[in-house]
Simulated assay, not measured.
Amino acid sequence: MDNNAGSQDCLRTQDCTLSAPPHTHNLGLLRQGLMRTAQRRGTATAMATTVEDEVEAPEPGDGPRLGFVGAGMMATAMVNGIVASKVTEPDNVFVSAPHRSSLDRFAKLGVRTSDINLEVASGSDVVVVAVKPDVVPAVLREIAPHLRKDALVVSIAAGIPLAVLEQLAPGKRVVRVMPNTPCLVSEGATGFSMGSLATDEDRDTVHALMGAVGLAVEVKEALLDGLTGVSGSGPAYIYVLIEALADGGVRMGLPRAMAIRLAAQTVKGAAEMVLETGEHPAVLKDNVCSPGGLTIAAIESLEKNGFRSAAMQAVIAVASKSIEMRNAEEEKRTK
């Protein structure tokens, strides 16, 4: 009972190292962490490098400079959310990818783009490594010598542990982040873990960055695998649920478009009930189930067909795969 009470208190107060989705009145507060990062630059513009030819990035406007190496779906979601939340100006966001075709959607947002990763590395206060896990080692080896002295490296790659990231970017402050695609509409759910050199200021910066596009929670690195199973991959499970509910509606005669909208709004409304009331989901479920009624008959059908177990196993499957990837990377590091 105490555990449930603690969970409910966390939901009600949004404490427990959580950052709530932003609203207009607190966006200024969210910017402060990023602005402190920008202030570290001072007047220094020189970049330490180990190669003969320095890569010069074009100068953006004042404010925190956010770089994204990689232009996939997650980077797209984060950049869209950051621009929409006005955490920093679009021209302070810099995205790189090997193919220009991948950058077209970013250019439309007013952010700067390049097909040269080193330009992003040399011109950003916060560098988000947003490439696939198997590409992370090569990318970090490429950009590490060109990172600004005070740059913060943020990795959103699943399964690459902090120890490996810190080995690939020696002497740099690193944070692991696991966002999800609803960042695109400022409704993301993100977990992050601090590296050994990361500071309290870095914690504030990541809270500001990810809190601007949804909910952010700091966890121990060992918990990121489970968090990935719940929220990192979670939207996909919910899309399947929405599709299945809509299919049921179509089977019973509802137009497809109407069924999808009803199902999506139902999921959204139920989620808001959990977050706003602080009630345990079981309590809210019981409130809908009248004795001998329609909803309890539906719950019986869900239980008979393994709905609850299937959801739990999905989380476990993702977490197990993440652990497998992490162990493989750590094994490479020790060889």
Rank of each mutant, 00 (worst) to 15 (best):
I260A: 10
R261C: 11
G234M: 00
V274H: 12
S290N: 11
S290V: 15
L275C: 06
V274M: 15
M258V: 14
T277H: 02
V288Y: 07
L294G: 10
S231R: 02
E243K: 03
G253T: 14
D286T: 05
A263K: 13
V283L: 08
E276Q: 11
L275N: 06
G253F: 06
A298T: 05
Q265E: 10
G249M: 04
G229N: 00
A257M: 06
L294A: 15
G292E: 03
G232Q: 01
G249Q: 08
V288M: 06
D286Q: 12
A236W: 07
Y239D: 10
V267H: 03
G248L: 02
G232F: 01
R256P: 06
A264S: 13
M273H: 01
I296P: 07
T277K: 09
R261N: 13
P255R: 07
A236E: 02
M258S: 14
D247I: 11
V288P: 10
I238F: 11
T295R: 03
A270M: 05
R261F: 01
L254W: 02
G234F: 00
L284H: 07
A263W: 11
L284G: 05
M252H: 13
E243H: 04
E272M: 15
G292C: 07
A246F: 05
G249W: 09
L254M: 14
I260T: 12
T277N: 08
G292K: 07
A298M: 01
P235T: 09
V230L: 09
R261E: 15
M252W: 12
L262G: 02
L245G: 07
Y239K: 05
A246Y: 09
H280S: 08
T266A: 15
Y237N: 02
E272N: 10
M258C: 11
R261Q: 14
S231T: 14
G234N: 00
S290M: 04
I296R: 02
G253W: 07
A236T: 10
A282P: 03
G234C: 01
N287C: 14
A259V: 00
L245S: 05
V267S: 01
E272S: 13
V240G: 05
E272P: 00
H280T: 02
V274N: 04
T266D: 12
S290L: 13
M258Q: 11
A282V: 13
L262H: 09
L241S: 00
A259Q: 03
G234Q: 00
A236N: 04
L294V: 14
I260E: 04
A259C: 10
A297C: 13
E243N: 04
T266F: 07
L262F: 09
I260H: 08
L241Y: 10
A246C: 09
V250N: 11
P291G: 01
M252G: 08
I260F: 07
N287D: 15
R256Y: 05
D247K: 13
R251S: 15
K268W: 04
L275F: 11
P281Y: 08
E272W: 10
D247L: 11
Y237Q: 06
A244E: 05
H280G: 08
L241C: 12
P255Q: 11
V283A: 14
V288N: 08
A270H: 09
Y239R: 09
Y239V: 02
R251N: 15
M252V: 03
V274L: 14
A271R: 06
T277E: 02
P281R: 12
T228C: 00
P255C: 11
N287G: 15
P235H: 06
Y237E: 01
A257V: 03
I242M: 11
A282S: 12
L294M: 13
